Amino acid sequence: MKFRPLLFAVFIVVLSSCSSGKKAYEKGDYYGAVVKSVNRLKQKPDHSKSKETLKGAYPLALQSLEQEAQNMLASNEMFKSRNTINIYNRVNELYEVVKSSPAALTVIKSPKNYYSEIGPLKEKASEELYGAGITAMMKATRRDSREAYFYFKECEGYTPRYKEALEMMTQSERDGTLTVMYEESAYNNWTSSGNFIRQLDEIQFIELVNKNIAVTQMGRKFDLNMLVSIQNYSEKKPVITKKEYELIDSVKVGEKVVNKVKVPTYQTIRGKYIENKITVESEGTISIVIVDPKTGNKVFSDDFRGTGIWKDTWGTCSGDQRVFSKSQKDACATSTPRPDSQALRKQAMEDLDKQVYSRLSGFLKNY
């Protein structure tokens, strides 16, 4: 018997999927063995090997997770209630997986869940997280305040309105936010820092305020002052390259009689096609200096160079017009293109935005 290549490939895939649950079981991955076996039974409810694997893997997966939960509850782990909830959730996931397959339910008739046990643990988990948040806040550093924010946020997820977790979350986010007052000086108004400033301001724990607005916020102090100097912009001279093509063809011009037989006569035609390419590059620069207002020290200084490139082509035709293709004729009918200064400026701006955002986002996040 011969297999066609496609049928043979399908056979191999099916064979592999049949044994994947068993392989997971043999490796001690009982959780994975249950999931893979059930998925196989959804495709083929009478698959005996999957039923056999499921029958052996489910009790072992359940036993392993229950033992892990008991050990966690008996430990001195800081977040043992939260961690136990996560373990119970894995038991519940197996419960839902088995329940999703009628064939699997013929093997595991009463899958176990821990939904009712999770409820009482949620308040304990909130207590753990709330305490960790308070401890982090008391360290009074920006980094610890950010850590506290996520503790309080997770606390609220388990028990909404737990103590003052919501208020503490708001306060820790405020304490963890780096505030930056910025101003910019422009050269010939060729660009603006608006794009990368807006992107940076969207990052959590970073707030940028324009100096013009900052002066109206009497008494407010900022962590950093940033000067954005938008400097030179220039476009280089166009670079034009040419490539010549000598074209030779023949066309029918009539007929003549040879030995009383009409035969076509041809004429050789010639032409020259020149492919012209024009390239223009642009360049713009921005200088950024960041100072710590408390010490007056310069903490960041860098120059950025953004570039753009514009290209176009046109053709030059000479000689017999019949020798040229339609595309060549169209190219020759095009006048010499003029550089698109607007596109060149936009490209240089976008390149600068990308560079500045990449560099500053990392610096400000870790400052």
Rank of each mutant, 00 (worst) to 15 (best):
T135Y: 14
N76F: 10
L352W: 11
E207G: 01
A331T: 00
E173R: 11
I230V: 15
P111S: 00
I274N: 08
A33N: 07
K236G: 14
Q70E: 15
L65R: 04
K260F: 03
M168Q: 14
F8K: 08
L352K: 10
A9C: 10
S325E: 15
F152H: 10
K365G: 00
A136C: 12
M181D: 05
E167L: 12
V98M: 10
L208N: 05
C155R: 01
N297V: 08
L121G: 14
A69L: 06
T53F: 03
K23N: 09
S361F: 01
Y130Q: 13
K277F: 05
E202K: 15
V263L: 04
D292A: 08
Y182R: 02
L54G: 02
L62H: 10
T279F: 10
L200N: 09
Q204M: 05
L352V: 10
S145V: 03
F8A: 07
T84E: 13
V253D: 09
V253Y: 05
F79M: 15
A140F: 07
L60Q: 05
K36H: 05
R198H: 08
D249H: 09
A331H: 05
R198A: 13
V209H: 09
N232Q: 13
K260E: 11
W310M: 12
I197A: 07
F152G: 13
V356Y: 02
D29A: 03
K211V: 15
I278Y: 03
G319L: 03
K221Q: 13
L344A: 10
L224Q: 02
V91N: 03
W190N: 11
T179M: 08
E281N: 15
P45N: 06
Y245S: 13
T307M: 10
V257T: 07
A103R: 02
K252S: 06
Q43S: 09
K298Y: 00
G271H: 08
K221T: 10
I248Y: 11
A24R: 08
A24K: 13
Y273H: 12
K256H: 09
V323D: 08
T141K: 11
G315V: 04
K298H: 01
M1C: 12
A136T: 11
I85D: 11
G306P: 14
K99E: 06
E167P: 06
I288A: 05
V97W: 15
S301K: 09
D320E: 09
K354R: 11
S64V: 02
Q321Y: 02
D29C: 04
R82T: 12
M78C: 02
T106I: 01
N83G: 07
F205G: 06
F79T: 14
Y182K: 06
Q171E: 15
